[in-house]
């Protein structure tokens, strides 16, 4: 599974962090960082994160 975030769209709402804390987090400056190739076992929470992104900036591939 591959996760791609369009950083031009991302506005650091952080909703993905609540949905998938193992994959998405905020750095000390409040900007999004994420794991681009998370374990398949995390698929449900990654899909949830993509759903709740206010800017719809998260794509889940494969």
């Amino acid at each position: 599974m591959k996760v791609v975030v369009d950083m031009n769209k991302c506005q650091d709402h952080g909703q993905c962090v609540f949905a998938a804390p193992d994959v998405f987090s905020m750095d000390d400056d409040g900007h999004l960082v994420y794991v681009s190739g998370p374990d398949e076992a995390l698929r449900d929470e990654v899909e949830e994160a993509a759903d709740v992104c206010p800017l719809q900036a998260i794509r889940v591939e494969d």
Binding site: D12, H13, G14, V17, F18, G30
Partner: peptide, 12 residues
């Protein structure tokens, strides 16, 4: 700002 917004999340 964005940091304040994330502050609200601490109560989630």
């Amino acid at each position: 700002g964005q940091a304040a917004a994330m502050g609200a999340a601490r109560y989630r």
